[in-house]
Lab assay of single mutants.
Amino acid sequence: TTYKLILNGKTLKGETTTEAVDAETAERVFKEYAKKNGVDGEWTYDDATKTFTVTE
């Protein structure tokens, strides 16, 4: 399944996708990605669109 991440950081904005077996796995991948890019904020997930959003 393809999951999407929307980054709404103070200095970094953008989108990325990952293939994962479930939302929990995708969330771990995306949180590591955000951490590596210095983005830390509020996380939300929309199951209907398989989209995570992190907003600083």
Rank of each mutant, 00 (worst) to 15 (best):
T1E: 15
T1A: 14
T1H: 15
T1F: 12
T1Y: 14
T2P: 06
T2R: 11
T2H: 09
T2Q: 10
T2N: 07
Y3V: 01
Y3R: 00
Y3P: 00
Y3W: 08
Y3S: 00
Y3A: 00
K4M: 07
L5K: 00
L5N: 00
L5W: 03
L5F: 06
L5R: 00
L5H: 00
L5M: 06
I6S: 04
I6P: 00
I6L: 09
I6V: 11
I6M: 06
I6T: 05
L7G: 02
L7M: 14
L7W: 13
L7E: 02
L7Y: 11
N8R: 13
N8A: 08
N8P: 03
G9F: 13
G9I: 08
G9L: 14
G9E: 03
G9D: 03
K10T: 11
K10S: 12
K10Q: 14
K10Y: 10
K10M: 13
T11Q: 10
T11H: 13
T11C: 10
T11N: 15
L12S: 09
L12Y: 13
L12R: 12
K13Q: 11
K13Y: 12
K13G: 06
K13M: 09
K13D: 05
K13I: 12
G14W: 15
G14L: 12
G14P: 04
G14Q: 13
E15F: 12
T16V: 14
T16R: 12
T16M: 12
T16G: 05
T16K: 07
T17I: 10
T17Q: 10
T17M: 10
T17C: 06
T17W: 15
T17S: 09
T17N: 07
T17F: 13
T17V: 10
T18H: 08
T18C: 09
T18S: 05
E19K: 07
E19A: 08
E19D: 11
E19I: 14
E19C: 09
E19G: 05
E19L: 10
A20T: 06
A20L: 03
A20P: 01
A20H: 03
V21R: 07
V21P: 15
V21I: 12
D22N: 15
D22G: 04
D22M: 04
D22K: 04
A23I: 10
A23W: 14
A23Q: 12
E24M: 14
E24D: 11
E24L: 12
E24V: 13
E24Y: 14
E24W: 09
E24R: 11
E24T: 11
E24K: 13
T25R: 06
T25N: 11
T25G: 08
T25Q: 14
T25I: 08
A26V: 03
A26Y: 00
A26W: 01
E27R: 13
E27G: 09
E27V: 07
E27P: 00
R28H: 09
R28E: 08
R28K: 13
R28D: 05
R28I: 09
R28N: 07
R28F: 11
R28S: 11
V29C: 06
V29L: 12
V29N: 06
V29H: 14
V29Y: 15
V29D: 05
V29E: 08
V29F: 15
V29K: 10
V29T: 11
F30I: 01
K31F: 06
K31G: 04
K31Y: 07
K31S: 05
K31N: 04
E32A: 13
E32G: 06
E32M: 09
E32F: 06
E32D: 10
E32T: 10
Y33K: 02
Y33W: 14
Y33A: 03
Y33D: 02
A34S: 05
A34W: 03
A34P: 00
A34R: 01
A34Q: 02
K35A: 15
K35R: 12
K35C: 07
K35S: 11
K36Y: 11
K36N: 13
K36L: 12
K36P: 01
K36M: 14
K36C: 07
K36S: 12
N37I: 14
N37M: 15
N37L: 15
G38Y: 05
G38P: 02
G38K: 07
G38S: 06
G38D: 07
G38C: 06
G38I: 04
G38F: 07
V39R: 03
V39F: 11
V39I: 12
V39D: 02
V39E: 02
V39L: 11
V39Y: 06
V39T: 04
D40V: 14
D40A: 12
D40H: 14
D40I: 14
G41P: 01
G41F: 03
G41T: 02
E42G: 06
E42K: 11
E42Y: 11
E42F: 13
E42C: 08
W43D: 00
W43V: 02
W43L: 03
W43A: 01
T44K: 08
T44C: 06
T44S: 15
Y45A: 01
Y45F: 07
Y45V: 02
Y45M: 02
Y45K: 01
Y45N: 01
D46N: 10
D46S: 07
D46M: 04
D46Q: 05
D46I: 05
D47P: 13
D47L: 08
A48V: 12
A48E: 13
A48M: 12
A48T: 11
A48I: 10
A48F: 12
T49G: 05
T49V: 06
T49E: 06
T49F: 05
T49D: 04
T49P: 02
K50H: 12
K50D: 03
T51C: 05
T51F: 03
T51K: 03
T51Y: 03
T51N: 02
F52W: 09
F52G: 00
F52V: 01
F52C: 01
T53Y: 11
T53G: 03
T53S: 07
T53W: 09
T53D: 02
T53A: 05
V54H: 01
V54C: 06
T55W: 15
T55A: 05
T55V: 09
T55D: 07
E56W: 12
E56R: 03
E56I: 08
E56F: 10
E56M: 07
